[in-house]
Design a protein around this nucleic acid. Structure first.
Length: 322
DNA sequence: AACATTGGCAACCGCAAGCGG
DNA sequence: GCCGCTTGCGGTTGCCAATGT
């Protein structure tokens, strides 16, 4: 016996909601509440599926919803909690009054992921990409790294080139404009060479990392002062001495060259505080790494191998994560 | 100006959990 | 404990406006 469909698909309207439909639904819910979504469209005179009504109400019509731009504080919260709970959008949204899980999910997918990437942070693991590369180079055997690097270059070449060359291109554009005799077309013609050059430098950096494992000792992944990738990073903001962390100063004012707007670290010239290298890789049974590992939960303070990531006072969790 | 591509967002889909009989 | 139903959730799709070529 199959599952009963939530509505008669044939008689149900789909797609964008009209203002009239919104009014009908809102006024019906104002009078009768939201009990039994299956009956609501019928009783409200709507040719909609109950599920569709529920979504429309919870994601758009609810009077307590906040519409419009996400603030820096909200973005911080999303990133912060995403690093802890992952794609649990409802949990993250619960920390943001007036925002729905759909809002948060969309904002993450369209904006925040890109922001983090442009900062040199992997949006999945929330680790700096250079850190991931270092982990790869110290964990895998050199032949494996070479194959991986080759595959990654194939898959993400365009994205990497965009990230890595953007600032250099901007800089060169300014220079070419300023310098007499240096025309725009010369610049464009040299763009392909620039890309090829960048690919070669990426490969060189990876191969150096393979050949010189000592520059990235496993217990000091962050403190990688070696020449590994320094060749191809046009600009690289060094990490604060106290260690990398998401914090208010890192998230505000996109236009002023704040870390939100910069490639935080795409190479080994980035440095970190000494504390970051002191932690060992040890996993506990819960998947969280134990003392000396990447993620240590001490009360509400969450550490990782990069130092303190989040300092969450108990009241920071508006709704406790189960 | 026309067409193609991209970005942002709303809505849909299907699965799983929760709940009551 | 099982069954049927409702609700919640996360992934995906589709539409449309903005931007680029």
């Amino acid at each position: 016996m199959g599952r009963i469909p939530c509505c008669e698909k044939d008689n149900v309207k789909r797609g964008q909601w009209t203002p009239e439909e919104d009014n009908k639904l809102s006024s019906y819910i104002a009078k009768h509440g939201t009990r039994n979504w299956r009956l609501i469209p019928k009783n409200a005179g709507l040719q909609r599926c109950g599920k569709s009504c529920r979504l429309r109400w919870t994601n758009y019509l609810r009077p307590d919803l906040k519409h419009g731009q996400f603030s820096d504080a909200e973005e911080q919260t999303i990133v912060k909690f995403h690093s802890i709970v992952g794609n649990r959008w409802s949990i993250i949204a619960a920390q943001l009054p007036g925002r729905t899980d759909n809002d948060v999910k969309n904002h993450w997918n369209t904006k925040l992921k890109k922001k983090l990437s442009s900062m040199g942070i992997d949006p999945v693991t929330h680790k700096p990409i250079s850190h991931l590369i270092a982990e790869i180079t110290t964990t895998l055997a050199p032949p494996q790294v070479a194959h991986l690097a080759e595959a990654a270059l194939g898959c993400f070449k365009d994205e990497m080139l965009h990230l890595l060359t953007k600032k250099r291109i901007d800089f060169q554009l300014q220079q070419s404009n300023a310098a007499p005799g240096n025309t725009q077309s010369n610049y464009i013609n040299s763009k392909q060479e620039e890309k090829d050059d960048t690919i070669e430098k990426i490969k060189l950096g990876l191969s150096r990392a393979i050949q010189e494992p000592d520059i990235l000792p496993p217990n000091k992944l962050w403190d990688s002062h070696g020449p590994t990738f320094s060749n191809f990073t046009g600009t690289c903001t060094t990490f604060p001495a106290s260690g990398f962390q998401y914090g208010p100063s890192s998230f505000s004012n996109e236009e002023d060259g704040s870390p939100w707007n910069q490639s935080m670290c795409t190479g080994s010239t980035c440095t970190a505080g000494d504390q970051q290298g002191q932690l060992q890789d040890k996993h506990d049974e819960n998947g969280l790494e134990s003392e000396g590992g990447k993620e240590i939960r001490n009360g509400s303070i969450i550490f990782n191998s990069d130092g303190v990531l989040w300092d969450l006072p108990s009241d920071d969790l508006m709704n406790p994560i189960v």
